[in-house]
């Protein structure tokens, strides 16, 4: 019983952290010529949940983040984009984690790549495919870079936390 309360509290803190990181990112846009590109800092929290907690909790964290973010900060359509991207991203990261040759940076790049792919697939239903095709190359290149950056951040955080836990 006590353990489940502790897990719920842990999940609550991680959700809050993911939301705060998303909000901070929204306030500080990246100085890139392509609009809408984000670093995806909240993905580090998702990676932490995936590597330190469990698959189930990582999926729950993604759903909570998307829903709360959708209701508080964005609109229903934005929530749809986040949900499709988030669902594909977490699925890819869970799958990539099982491959022994892939490090946390590779897992993060896979997640970022699938996030873009999920969002662009939903975008195809609403906007012309020509616009999606124009944006896709730049979004894919950015997913490579942002995925690597968030992966390195998550790796550093996990390294320090595992060192602290073992003390």
């Amino acid at each position: 019983m006590k353990k489940s309360f502790s897990r719920a509290a842990h999940l609550g803190i991680l959700t809050a952290l993911a939301l705060v990181l998303s909000y901070v990112e929204h306030l500080l846009p990246l100085p890139v010529p392509v609009p809408g590109i984000k670093l995806g800092l909240s993905n580090t929290v998702l990676l932490y949940a995936l590597f330190m907690l469990s698959k189930k909790e990582a999926v729950l964290l993604m759903l909570l983040k998307v829903l709360i973010q959708g209701f508080v900060f964005t609109s229903f359509s934005s929530m749809l984009y986040s949900l499709s991207g988030g669902a594909l991203s977490i699925f890819a990261m869970i799958l990539a984690r099982h491959f022994k040759g892939i490090s946390i940076v590779g897992v993060s790049i896979s997640g970022a790549f699938m996030h873009i792919l999920g969002q662009c697939t939903v975008a195809l239903f609403f906007i012309t495919y020509k616009a999606v095709l124009s944006y896709l190359p730049f979004l894919l290149i950015s997913s490579c870079i942002t995925g690597a950056v968030t992966g390195i951040i998550a790796k550093t955080v996990l390294h320090h936390l595992s060192g602290r836990n073992s003390k």
């Binding site: 990539a96 491959f99 040759g101 892939i102 490090s103 290149i141």
Partner: peptide, 12 residues
């Protein structure tokens, strides 16, 4: 590990 990561990045 880094080789596989690099392969993913090259694919993207």
């Amino acid at each position: 590990n880094y080789k596989t990561d690099l392969l993913i990045a090259v694919f993207v």
